Amino acid sequence: MTTFERPELTPPGGEKKVLLHSCCAPCSGEVMEAMLASGIDYTIFFYNPNIHPDREYLLRKDENIRFADQHGVPFVDADYDKENWFARAKGMEWEPERGIRCTMCFDMRFERTALYAHEHGFPVMTSSLGISRWKDMNQINGCGQRAVAPYQGLSYWEYNWRKGGGSNRMIEISKREEFYQQEYCGCVYSLRDTNRHRREVGRPQIEIGKLYYKKDDLD
């Protein structure tokens, strides 16, 4: 296993209380451990109504709860609210990944996160979404800044969790903890498009609940 030295983290304004929007355990594992190492008092906010179907949603959420409990980190389980997500996605069903449907999705999730932060006294919010190489960091940061704009005293932390070895640590933590390894972004349209691509290249279709990271794959 490779050893990395994490940089010291300083949230905006030197604040030490942060609300972390988490999309899943693999993406948030490094973010969580990095903030703990820097002495940041944070709470996880799990609001991801995009994840489909229900079994996939529960697998991702339960893995995140397990890891939060392991570290003694508070976990806010927000409503699933999938009907609202589908209503907002109407007309965007065939938009590509990183397009306007993803912007809508990030906006929706961050708006709810920002509201909770405002109502519960968090001066800073951030998200684990940006650590994934499949995501557009500028798109995510723009959604984060829009979400906090209505609330005076609330900041969105635009930290690049990929830098300084963060992406490598994310994978190592996932293997160490043997997290569930999701094979698509999360929404039903991502599942559809990923399976379509797999058919085109002769790969098997996604089997929900089958693939997990393995400790044996650690260097």
Results as ranks from 00 to 15, higher is better:
E8S: 10
L9F: 11
T10Y: 07
T10F: 07
G13W: 04
G14I: 08
K16C: 01
K16W: 08
V18P: 05
H21V: 07
H21W: 04
C23G: 08
P26A: 05
P26M: 09
S28A: 15
V31F: 02
M35L: 15
M35D: 08
G39P: 13
F46Q: 07
N48I: 06
N48S: 08
D54C: 02
Y57I: 00
Y57V: 00
L59N: 08
L59F: 12
K61G: 09
N64Q: 14
R66V: 08
Q70N: 05
V76C: 12
V76D: 12
A78Y: 10
K82P: 11
E83F: 10
F86M: 10
M92T: 15
M92A: 14
E93G: 09
E93C: 04
R98P: 03
G99C: 06
M104N: 10
F110R: 05
Y116D: 06
H118I: 07
F122R: 04
M125N: 10
M125D: 08
T126Y: 08
S127E: 02
G130R: 00
W134C: 00
D136L: 02
D136G: 03
N138L: 00
Q145A: 01
R146N: 09
R146G: 01
P150L: 01
Y151D: 08
G153P: 02
S155L: 07
E158Y: 03
R162Y: 01
G164C: 00
G164A: 01
G165H: 01
S167D: 13
S167M: 04
S174G: 06
K175Q: 15
R176W: 06
R176F: 11
F179K: 08
E183P: 04
V188M: 13
Y189C: 03
S190P: 11
D193V: 05
R196E: 15
R199N: 14
E200N: 11
Q205M: 13
E207W: 09
K210R: 14
Y213N: 06
K215C: 05
D219C: 03
